[in-house]
């Protein structure tokens, strides 16, 4: 019973992070039909920027919540800026080209960012300070719940709810949804598609930076190739929920987090990833458009 509750808490924590990162994949895919392979690396870049803020100004003692908040804000701004820049340089010129050209451009961007991180911060594993947050823990039904976990779960929930409201209940959110269904029609209706795309490259990487920083805080480490690993997981989450589908990415993230936690808890950890990928393939076979269905219209 204790393990069971523990796995749920662990799963929800990781799932919240996956969901935050998955939203960036799904929003970009929804509007541009592009798998932004560089997204995971952007998120980890966010973790590194945040880490630099935290360690660079830590004068010993308790850095406190204010510093953490500052690191978050700087990281969000930096990564959103990088996202917009990435779109301008690597994706916008290829909008009318063969889709695969954009895919390779995204792969190149991923390689560039990943190795850029290595050049700046070095190839070693960086440890996140342990005194960022109170070490408080709670014991519930035989499981141990840490302050960090509660913070991550709550923050992810709040951010997802905010995004959901923004996309479904504001004019600009409607524009994003319209552009995702049919760019040309949206343009004819007077929607500025370029602005929508730019906004998607602000929101996605912005949320991703938070996700990246959460990864660093939760696992207390960051290294330059992390983007691939977590990016891939988040991407699987997006597919699981139905790519292009915003609530789908949230659901997919949480489910994948839970699935991973239980796989790690009950199955040999060396096969954990294989099981996750196996699940992905089964889902693709049984329900290729994801659990909540993709939001991509195709005409015969």
């Amino acid at each position: 019973m204790g393990t069971f509750v523990q796995q749920i808490v662990n799963g929800l924590t990781v799932g919240g992070i996956y969901a935050l990162i998955a939203l960036g994949y799904t929003m970009v895919y929804g509007v541009m039909r592009l798998i932004n392979f560089a997204h995971g690396d952007l998120c980890i870049l966010g973790a590194f920027v945040g880490l630099t803020m935290l360690t660079g100004s830590a004068g010993g003692g308790h850095p406190g919540a204010a510093l953490l908040l500052l690191a978050l804000v700087v990281s969000i701004i930096a990564i959103a800026g990088a996202g917009v820049l990435l779109e301008r340089i690597a994706y916008r010129p290829l909008r009318k080209a063969d889709r695969l050209a954009a895919v390779v451009s995204a792969l190149g961007a991923s390689l560039m960012i990943e190795n850029g991180i290595m050049l700046i911060w070095g190839p070693q594993v960086h440890v996140f300070p342990s005194n960022l947050l109170p070490a408080t823990t709670w014991h519930v039904a035989g499981a141990t719940i840490s302050f960090v976990q509660v913070m991550i779960i709550l923050a992810s929930l709040v951010l997802m709810a905010a995004l959901y409201l923004f996309v479904n209940h504001t004019r600009f959110g409607t524009a994003i949804r319209a552009a995702a269904i049919d760019q040309d029609a949206a343009r004819l209706m007077g929607i500025n598609v370029n602005r929508v795309i730019t906004s998607v490259f602000i929101i996605g990487p912005g949320l991703g930076a938070i996700g990246g920083l959460f990864i660093g805080i939760y696992y207390r480490e960051a290294y330059f190739t992390m983007g691939w690993t977590y990016g891939l997981y988040a991407f699987i989450a997006a597919i699981l929920g139905g790519i292009g589908n915003i609530p789908g990415a949230m659901l997919g993230g949480v489910l994948l987090g839970l699935f991973n936690a239980f796989a790690a808890g009950y199955v040999s950890s060396s096969w954990q990833d294989a099981i996750t990928f196996g699940l992905l393939i089964v889902i693709l076979l049984v329900r290729p458009t994801g659990l909540l269905g993709e939001r991509v219209a195709e005409k015969v």
Partner: peptide, 21 residues
């Protein structure tokens, strides 16, 4: 070695943007 893949990534973007075909 260190700069290799960084430059590589930039080159991939550049080739695609300049010659998408």
């Amino acid at each position: 070695a260190e700069y290799r893949y960084f430059v590589f990534g930039i080159a991939m973007i550049a080739v695609m943007v300049l010659r998408p075909q």
